[in-house]
Simulated scan of single mutants.
Amino acid sequence: MPEIIFPGPEGRLEGRYHASPSRDAPIAIVLHPHPQFGGTMNNKVVYNLHYAFHRLGFSVLRFNFRGVGRSQGEFDQGIGELSDAASALDYLQHLCPNARGCYVAGFSFGAWIGMQLLMRRPEIAGFVSVAPPANMYDFTFLAPCPSSGLIVNGDADRIAPMGDIEKLAAKLRTQKGITITHHVVQGANHFFDEGMDEMVSTVEGYVKMRLRETAEV
């Protein structure tokens, strides 16, 4: 998988890009967990999400937020990281101008950033939020949530407790015109030390279903 460097708001951003052989393949970006707690694009959940989208035929990009790895800049409390994500999506769209769909996926802090990006970019057709930290961050900006998506978490997650994620999913489900799918992996902690395969297969199954629905329209 080629290493790439692309321009961000505070300098270069470091990423990994996997291109689909199909010119009109859908695209996806994958966002990593909190930079100040060891989060990088090589986190195993992010890595597995990246390859899940690649197996489904997507052109997919994951990258390091500012100040992580070879990405320039400093941590910016989520504000700058959202700008980084927007720049990553711009870059991916430049690489894939004929893409027939766009998804955003994020893990933990990356899920929070991904949901904010979703609100700002109407071309995003769907989202995957893995262990969104609904206990730590305000998700009330999702009013209304503009796209259907998948939320996945473990029932043994002590960092982003299941009860808070259930409340978030229930709130989003009250909105008309979208469908929120929520899957709980039994026995999984925040990092899916157990249940990684189930998490990945859930994501793949959900995205396959969405792609079939799109093809039938």
Rank of each mutant, 00 (worst) to 15 (best):
L172M: 09
E166C: 09
Q77Y: 11
Q36G: 09
C102Y: 13
D90E: 10
L150I: 13
F53W: 05
N42A: 12
F37W: 00
R66E: 09
A170P: 07
D90L: 12
P33L: 11
T140L: 05
S59F: 09
A86N: 04
I151E: 15
L61M: 10
C102H: 14
P133K: 03
D76V: 14
A105D: 07
G39W: 08
G69T: 07
H34P: 06
G126M: 14
E81T: 14
G73K: 11
Q93F: 05
Q93G: 09
A99G: 09
Q72D: 00
L118M: 04
F58I: 07
D157N: 01
C102T: 15
H94D: 14
L117D: 05
D90Y: 06
M136K: 13
F127Q: 09
V60R: 04
F139C: 04
E123F: 03
P133V: 04
F58P: 08
Y91S: 06
A99D: 06
D138E: 07
P122H: 09
R158P: 03
F63D: 14
L117A: 12
M115V: 04
L61H: 12
F107S: 04
F127M: 01
N98A: 13
C102R: 15
E74I: 12
A156P: 11
L56Q: 10
L142H: 10
A169K: 11
S108V: 02
P97Y: 02
C145M: 05
D84I: 10
D155N: 12
D138H: 00
R62S: 11
A156D: 14
G38A: 02
D164K: 14
M136N: 12
P122E: 14
F75L: 12
P133D: 13
V128M: 05
